[in-house]
Amino acid sequence: MADVRRFLYINRKAPYGTIYALESLEVVLIGAAFEQDVSLAFLDDGVFQLAKGQDTSGIGMKGFSAIYRALGDYGVTKLYVETDSLATRGLTLDDLQAITFEDENDGYTEKPSIIPVNKAEMAKVMAEQDVVLSF
């Protein structure tokens, strides 16, 4: 395909206090139909979206953390997570849920989707894009 562009969705908000995180996910799922080169960036409070063990049964809201695990099915396999943002928030990569995809070009081997990057590397990821969408 000649016309594949690089899309980056930037997630900087915590999951339930505002609607941004869920809105971003919905746009990513819809946008996946266009078969572009999609990446997701999680930095600042956005890293909280990927925290494992989220249980929203007590707050009367639909939990959506499981949807991140479906992203691989939609061909979205690059989730850049800024480690500086994790550290600032008292988190490590172990506090995040495991997210994987099956690599069609490699006998459907399961591979991790989360790519840890530091601030400088995240800046480079941002600079490499054709289209950037912020949430």
């Binding site: 007590g58 809201m61 939990g63």
Partner: peptide
């Protein structure tokens, strides 16, 4: 309930 929704374990 807000702690649990956000996946913050009690020991954290």
């Amino acid at each position: 309930p807000d702690i649990a929704a956000r996946g913050i374990a009690p020991e954290k």
